[in-house]
Lab assay of single mutants.
Amino acid sequence: MSRESDVEAQQSHGSSACSQPHGSVTQSQGSSSQSQGISSSSTSTMPNSSQSSHSSSGTLSSLETVSTQELYSIPEDQEPEDQEPEEPTPAPWARLWALQDGFANLECVNDNYWFGRDKSCEYCFDEPLLKRTDKYRTYSKKHFRIFREVGPKNSYIAYIEDHSGNGTFVNTELVGKGKRRPLNNNSEIALSLSRNKVFVFFDLTVDDQSVYPKALRDEYIMSKTLGSGACGEVKLAFERKTCKKVAIKIISKRKFAIGSAREADPALNVETEIEILKKLNHPCIIKIKNFFDAEDYYIVLELMEGGELFDKVVGNKRLKEATCKLYFYQMLLAVQYLHENGIIHRDLKPENVLLSSQEEDCLIKITDFGHSKILGETSLMRTLCGTPTYLAPEVLVSVGTAGYNRAVDCWSLGVILFICLSGYPPFSEHRTQVSLKDQITSGKYNFIPEVWAEVSEKALDLVKKLLVVDPKARFTTEEALRHPWLQDEDMKRKFQDLLSEENESTALPQVL
């Protein structure tokens, strides 16, 4: 008996699950189920560990084997000379395990699969056993689809999209007709009724959600790893209520002995410091949205989908001078704002400069500016000194954290500008005749005249004003913003236009 009217009423009120309206889709043409990776026989039982391990490696599972009696060998002398080797079968990115008779397991190899009674669906509900069930008529011709799209860092995100009359449910929550939600590992998919569980979705590319604290899981769906560094790992996640993407940084307390840091400095109150950081608001710094204190720290951040500045300059790639100017102007505005709010970044580098898009002209935002507030000064500097390429001379020669101030950030900005303009770092371990530390503390950077011949004198002058060993003589952010190279009204107008595109209400910060 159909429950279409009941569920449609529920759909009209929406769902609290991570779902959002989605535009129309072009329906895929039908194809045989076997060619799409559906096993030839149905099963109602969950797999054992041996079955799972075989399939996850990209080899055929026991459900897909063919009797050897149906095959015969071709003698080598009868092999056609022009026969080309077969292409290897792509490894599946996800697996659906059937929970009921009449449904088959599915190895997801393609990027898009339609499910329903219509014969054009890649996964067609046409098993005779299924057709005899009382629920068969409640399934729509095109009930739902599972697909994946390219996300940040060229990774993939799996989604389920509801197109049914009676509802598609993920972990008992209604997706909603015309809406989608991301699928995470071990999600249970039910059709027409929330208790009519048909599939379990296994994402073969992500970790299980159960490793994360419950308070975090209640608000966010964790997904793929976006990156990792000395101070922690960053994962893509989704807000459950809105389906908006965020980035979540995970900082290990054990790695940084944060408990010991608190004992050594009783004034170090991470929760208080995070609340201060959350109040920071500038178009060129990453917004801190939320914070969870569990076995590790979880910092929920605004997501930038254009990648890191590092990706644009790695491998001796240089940027156009006009692009360097647009990016560097924004970096200076961001660091100036942090300094005005009493925050020294201490870890400025291309990896911590994020881009809003893949376009050459785009907004940038500074991230990882609050680590000293979370990890403690000593722990952070011990970590950073392991990779000193961007560290100021006074940091390398000081004991502990004494003896330096916000000028350290201006040195790091000078190193970043040098790399963007030239395509190579000013200080490098590859210069074996002088140690990296000695290069930095003496201010002897690697200047290649033929490379810098293409760079304007004004740009080079600003680099020199920032890479000054004496912090008292080094340019401040205010002085850098007043430098002739940055007195470019076309560049500032472009920045204002980019801000307006992102948010019509965002105004250009005042600069002296």
Rank of each mutant, 00 (worst) to 15 (best):
K142G: 10
K249M: 01
Q11A: 14
S140P: 00
S164G: 13
L99Q: 08
S39H: 06
H163E: 03
P88I: 05
C243L: 13
S5P: 10
K241E: 09
K135E: 09
K177W: 14
S53V: 15
S50G: 11
K224G: 04
T172L: 14
K235V: 06
E127I: 13
C243A: 02
A158V: 09
H22M: 12
I250W: 05
G176S: 12
S28R: 07
E239S: 04
A247L: 01
A98L: 03
I74K: 13
T65S: 04
F125V: 13
Y156R: 04
I250M: 06
V270C: 09
Y113S: 03
T59F: 15
L60Q: 06
Y123H: 14
W114S: 07
S252T: 12
V270T: 09
S39F: 13
W97H: 05
N112C: 09
Y156K: 05
E8R: 11
G23V: 08
L174I: 08
T65W: 02
N112H: 08
K241Y: 15
G232Y: 00
N184E: 04
S252H: 04
S67F: 05
E122V: 14
F169N: 04
P266G: 10
I221Q: 01
F202R: 00
S210A: 09
R240E: 05
S15I: 09
Y72V: 06
G151R: 06
T59L: 03
Y123I: 14
T65V: 06
H143V: 02
V200D: 06
N269L: 11
A104C: 06
E70D: 09
V109F: 07
L226C: 12
N186G: 02
P266C: 15
S39L: 09
C231I: 09
Q29T: 07
A264E: 03
E87M: 09
G37M: 09
T26Y: 15
T68I: 11
R3M: 07
Q83D: 03
T272I: 04
Q10H: 07
N112P: 04
Q209L: 15
A158N: 05
D77W: 07
T168M: 01
E79F: 14
Q11C: 14
K244D: 09
P80H: 09
S228W: 08
I248D: 02
P90Q: 07
K197G: 12
I160A: 13
Q69Y: 06
P85D: 05
A94G: 10
G23S: 07
F144N: 02
E87T: 10
P92T: 14
S55H: 06
D162G: 07
E263F: 12
P21A: 04
D6C: 03
A104F: 09
V175S: 11
S24L: 12
N184D: 09
G167V: 08
S155V: 09
N196A: 15
F144L: 05
S223W: 12
Q83K: 08
Q209V: 10
S2G: 12
R181Q: 12
R262P: 14
T45E: 12
N105D: 07
E87F: 11
S35L: 05
G178R: 13
A17T: 09
R180M: 00
M46S: 13
S56W: 06
T272P: 15
L106C: 10
L130A: 08
Q83T: 12
I74D: 12
T59K: 04
I189F: 15
D6K: 08
N48K: 10
T225D: 05
H13Y: 12
S44L: 07
G102T: 14
E8C: 04
K235Y: 04
S39Y: 08
E64C: 02
W93R: 03
S33T: 07
S49V: 11
Q69A: 00
F115D: 01
S31W: 08
E76T: 13
Q27G: 07
T138V: 04
A264T: 02
G30I: 15
G178C: 14
S19Y: 03
S252I: 07
G116S: 02
S53A: 06
Q20M: 15
Q83R: 11
H13V: 15
D265F: 15
N166K: 07
R262L: 04
A104T: 10
S192T: 01
Q11I: 07
S32F: 13
T68L: 02
T26I: 06
Q34R: 08
I251L: 05
G165V: 08
I189R: 02
G116T: 01
E64N: 03
N185F: 13
R3F: 05
Y113W: 04
C121L: 09
I160M: 12
Q29N: 11
G178F: 03
R240H: 15
Q209G: 03
E4G: 10
I74A: 10
Y136C: 04
S194V: 09
K135Q: 06
H22N: 08
Y156I: 05
P92L: 15
R262H: 02
S44N: 12
G116V: 00
Q27K: 11
A267E: 15
Q20W: 06
V66I: 14
D6Y: 04
S31K: 12
R254K: 13
R181M: 00
L60M: 11
V150M: 04
K179Y: 06
N186S: 08
E127H: 15
V211M: 04
L204M: 15
I248A: 02
R262Y: 12
H22G: 10
E149R: 00
G58C: 04
P47F: 06
L99Y: 12
E239A: 04
R240W: 06
S32T: 11
T89V: 06
F201N: 00
Y136I: 04
D118V: 12
R240L: 04
I221S: 01
E8G: 11
I160F: 00
C121M: 08
F125L: 08
D218A: 12
H143Y: 04
F256T: 06
Y159K: 08
S19I: 01
E84T: 08
S33G: 10
T89W: 13
V198E: 07
K249W: 04
Y156Q: 01
Y72H: 09
C231M: 14
K235G: 15
S31P: 08
S12R: 11
E79Y: 13
E76A: 14
S32I: 05
Q78L: 06
Q78P: 06
L99T: 13
G23L: 07
N185Y: 06
F125S: 05
K253D: 02
D101H: 13
S223I: 10
E127V: 11
S52W: 03
P21M: 07
L204K: 00
K119H: 11
D162T: 14
E219I: 12
S39G: 14
T172S: 04
Q20N: 03
G227T: 01
K235E: 11
S42D: 13
K119A: 05
K153G: 00
G102C: 13
D118L: 15
T242V: 07
Q78H: 10
S164I: 02
Q100A: 12
S12F: 09
S16A: 05
R117V: 01
I189C: 03
F238Y: 04
R240F: 08
N110H: 12
A215V: 04
W114Y: 09
Q100C: 12
Q29K: 09
S260A: 00
W114K: 14
Y72N: 15
R95L: 05
Q34A: 07
F115S: 02
E122S: 09
T89L: 06
I157C: 06
D111V: 14
S12P: 09
K131M: 07
N105A: 08
K135R: 08
Y123A: 13
M46Q: 05
S44P: 13
F169R: 01
T138L: 03
E263P: 15
H163L: 05
F201D: 06
S140H: 02
G37N: 04
N186R: 01
W97R: 08
D6S: 11
L183W: 02
F169K: 00
L96C: 11
I74Y: 15
V7L: 07
I38F: 04
D118Q: 13
Y159T: 09
Q20K: 08
N110I: 15
I251V: 04
S33K: 11
H13E: 07
R148V: 13
T225S: 09
W114R: 12
D265S: 13
D134G: 07
E70A: 04
V200T: 12
S164Y: 01
R217K: 09
V246M: 02
N186P: 12
P213N: 06
Y72W: 15
D134F: 13
P182H: 10
V150Q: 02
M46W: 09
I250G: 11
W114Q: 09
S53L: 10
S41L: 10
P75F: 14
F144Y: 11
A98N: 13
V270K: 15
D77G: 06
S252Q: 07
G37R: 09
S49D: 10
N185H: 14
L236R: 05
P80T: 11
T242F: 03
F125A: 03
A247W: 02
E76D: 14
A158Q: 03
E107P: 14
A98Q: 11
E161I: 15
